[in-house]
Write a protein that binds this DNA or RNA. Structure first.
Lengths: 157, 157
DNA sequence: TATTGTTATACTCTATAACTATA
DNA sequence: TATAGTTATAGAGTATAACAATA
């Protein structure tokens, strides 16, 4: 089990370093993310909401009147990156930019009725996608996974 | 559990749908991935190996002579995407493309001595990065997390 | 001075399609 | 016909830096 020499023979890696990649959180995180992301996009369809647009719409529906800067902060992206997302939601008729009396710099993001309806429909699709994709995990396992991921998210705050 | 009405009141979302985003595996996966990925890059430095290059080097060191096509499959990316990675590793002097007698289409990827050394050094840096970043998780939690992520990875096979 | 929304710009990662040389 | 490596190209997603309007 333990190796006799401290220095590896040339060209030979010690046993502990044989499956390193597979043990890293980062590598597994990335590989798992790619699978879930691809299935999300497939579920929402060619012309459906991209994950980040769905996330933005979710926060706007749950927090009507949120500003772009606040939304960007909540999503963990830059202000500038949010412009295209807001543009798309506005072009789809799901969200309106509304001037805020008292501060003429900001524009409140307001969900339209169509936006709320589209969100609830997408929400069901996303739920179905996760339920079906993750069917091999018990609900306890999913709960544990989400809790551990949140723990990592808290590190970044 | 069940809601009394099938149609939500206009503008009002039912209680179950208030924190939906936070409960999705996909959303938490993405947010956690962004944090770990950023810390990896910071740890390896400006001119250090990017995550995907580190992963490729790891597999080449552990599987000397692997072909580009096989490596791409192992990493879950396209053949074409691997060219730039192999180019970079070759430019750094870490890997050599070696013709294979018997099949002149393929080129085996062979780690150089410098490549092996650079890998072992990067490996320690990556281990330190994960240990320090994930210090708020117990080793049991990390183990559980990796096991659950692998379970998701198995879905994509 | 600081903040909001915006534009311009560039970079990373990835995919698709087509090519060539082999098999 | 099929596969390996390659190139060209395009599309997400993101970041940085700057700007005008406003606070």
């Amino acid at each position: 089990m333990a190796r006799a020499t401290a220095t590896p023979s040339p060209g030979i890696l010690p046993p502990d370093e044989h499956a390193d990649l597979e043990d890293f959180v980062g590598y597994n995180l990335k590989r798992a993310y790619v699978i879930v992301d691809a299935d999300f996009r497939r579920a929402l369809g060619e012309d459906g909401l991209a994950p980040r647009v769905f996330s933005a719409l979710s926060l706007i529906v749950h927090t009507p009147g949120i500003t772009q800067s606040d939304l960007a902060r909540r999503l963990g992206i830059e202000r500038s990156g949010l412009v295209a997302i807001a543009d798309e939601l506005e072009a789809r008729g799901f969200v309106m930019r509304k001037p805020v009396p008292g501060d003429r710099r900001v524009q409140a993001l307001m969900p339209s009725a169509a936006g709320k309806a589209a969100y609830l429909e997408a929400l069901e699709t996303v739920r179905a996608h996760e339920a079906s994709l993750l069917a091999s995990l018990s609900s306890d396992e999913v709960e544990t996974l989400v809790a551990l991921l949140k723990k990592i998210r808290r590190i970044g705050e």
